[in-house]
């Protein structure tokens, strides 16, 4: 059968097929009528909730706020990671210090810092930022340091031979050479912080009328608007997929795949 063959050969069609099966199972369970709409809503009402929250602008606003928070945290976190890693490369003593604090803090989940963040900054943006920066900075430092250590000696010497020194050598040779590691660091940082963000928002809620997707979920659950909870979950999943499988995959394709630094992925 040509259609079946097409579906089994194409990765996207294959995945769509699995998703369709999952949705079918969902809808079947709902249709048995054993569960209340408040616990397991109809797919149609989730869809209506999604369309409604998008058209009223609520979903867009909440998503934008979450993305704004994570963008800000990524900027602060990568800046700090860059400074710490650069200083660690200049001084062996400082390298020991960075290694120690990274070892201490990396295993600590961001959400575990919530009570401390509350004590220090109270409810609000700064508390969430502290947690996000924490979940961004350590994986980034770890990966960047490993990357810098794995830079080819020959390429470093070629750089010095051309006349590059100090920061210029770092930015022109070490960073691109360590880029596969740095990118991995960013991937881990992103997924850590995206997960922490949703959790933190649920606990902190909104400050000054603002709130992100996590807060939206919490609010809707409070009012027993279950379809809206699922609609928000859907958006969270969608953004996760978009960033991890589209944006990062594209960056990878433009850089380390193009440069032959990693083996091309199979289709």
């Amino acid at each position: 059968m040509p259609i079946l063959k097409k579906v089994t050969e194409n990765k996207i069609l294959r995945q769509a097929f699995f998703i369709a099966i999952l949705l079918g199972v969902w809808q079947y369970i709902v249709s048995t009528g054993n569960y209340s709409e408040l616990i397991l809503p109809n797919l149609r009402s989730i869809w209506t909730a999604l369309v409604d929250s998008i058209s009223t602008g609520e979903m867009g606003e909440r998503t934008a706020y979450s993305l704004y928070l994570i963008g800000k945290a990524l900027a602060i976190g990568s800046g700090l990671a860059l400074i710490l890693t650069a200083l660690a490369m200049l001084s062996p003593l400082f390298a020991d210090f960075v290694k120690t604090i990274t070892t201490i803090f990396n295993p600590l989940p961001g959400v575990a810092l919530l009570p401390i963040a509350l004590l220090w900054f109270g409810i609000g943006e700064n508390s969430i930022l502290l947690i996000l920066v924490h979940s961004i900075i350590w994986p980034l430092i770890l990966n960047a340091t490993t990357g810098f250590r794995s830079v080819s000696r020959t390429q470093l010497e070629v750089g010095r031979n051309l006349g590059l020194r100090g920061l210029k050598l770092v930015s022109s040779v070490m960073v691109p050479s360590a880029f596969p590691y740095i990118l991995t660091g960013f991937k881990i940082s992103w997924s850590n912080s995206w997960r922490s963000l949703v959790a933190a928002e649920m606990i902190f809620g909104a400050s000054g009328g603002q709130g992100g997707l996590g807060w939206l979920i919490y609010q809707k659950r409070f009012f027993l608007q279950t379809p809206y909870v699922f609609a928000a979950l859907f958006v969270i999943i969608l953004i996760g997929i978009l960033v991890e499988n589209v944006i990062f995959a594209q960056i990878e394709k433009w850089t380390i795949q193009r440069w032959g630094m990693i083996i091309q992925k199979e289709k």
Binding site: S152, T154, V158, G163, F179, M261
Partner: peptide, 29 residues
């Protein structure tokens, strides 16, 4: 210390910068 007045050609095949094209390896230098 190293300098562009004495350029070294290495045995290792990775002496070209992999993130630059062959031509940019030269133009960059």
């Amino acid at each position: 210390e190293p300098g562009p007045d004495r350029i070294m050609v290495f045995q290792e095949f990775d002496q070209l910068f992999p993130w630059k094209t062959v031509k940019s390896n030269i133009t960059y230098a």
